[in-house]
Design a protein around this nucleic acid. Structure first.
Lengths: 108, 108
DNA sequence: AGGTTAGATAACCAAGTGGTTAGGTACGAG
DNA sequence: CTCGTACCTAACCACTTGGTTATCTAACCT
């Protein structure tokens, strides 16, 4: 699986997106991350492994804790990818796009 | 499944992203869309249904053809979502963010 | 009417996902 | 040393996914 696919797949789960949102407030332990959810520890562990494989989090070791930290680098790729479609949802960008195309035509 | 999750799930497959890329050049029939890929017609049909349920394409009817058209609206949501994490990958944005936080502090 | 083409549906299969419970490891505290 | 806490792995389950082949409908063209 390529990087971008792994990132999108990781983001497709609301629990994982909520974990990322929580991590924007700073590092957290697995226990802290699992608190808002009504699911078992192993389930959280699996989500964290998916996020780690996608490069969205990094994990350290401090005694018996495994603190998780956000790594937003793959999200930049997501933003860049989505931006390529901006002209298809943004009307003003579409007009600019048409203008540039027209200018290129008259150049020839 | 919520809208954003459906969109991310749809984008997690490279074949589906390639289909979207093709549709940026204009509408296409199912046959045309399937040409670049080495998979069966029904497989493409399934991909198109996923894209349709995610609201990323719309489909018309013209005689025996079912032309597909891009609808990038859900991609705007993706871009907006990702932008919320910009400060975690963009160093200059992070500095601006820190500055604003500092100003807010001194305000109190 | 008969044949061809575009496309969808159905049934199936292997692999993956999101969850569980049970049990194991590593560390700190008493 | 023993106990509790934090976390992981393993095994299992139901469901989904991405693919297949076979079969069907709908429209066009002789």
């Amino acid at each position: 699986m390529d990087q971008l696919s792994a990132t999108f797949a990781a983001l497709a789960d609301p629990t994982r997106r909520a974990i990322l949102a929580r991590l924007t407030e700073g590092p957290a332990t697995v226990k802290e991350l699992s608190e808002p959810f009504d699911i078992s520890g192993p389930a959280i562990s699996k989500h964290l492994r998916v996020l780690e494989k996608a490069g969205l989090i990094t994990r350290g070791r401090e005694a018996q804790w495994r603190p998780c930290q956000l790594d937003a680098t793959p999200l930049k790729e997501v933003a860049v990818w989505a931006e390529n479609y901006r002209r298809f949802w943004d009307a003003s960008y579409a007009r600019l796009d048409a203008l540039l195309t027209e200018m290129k035509e008259t150049d020839k």
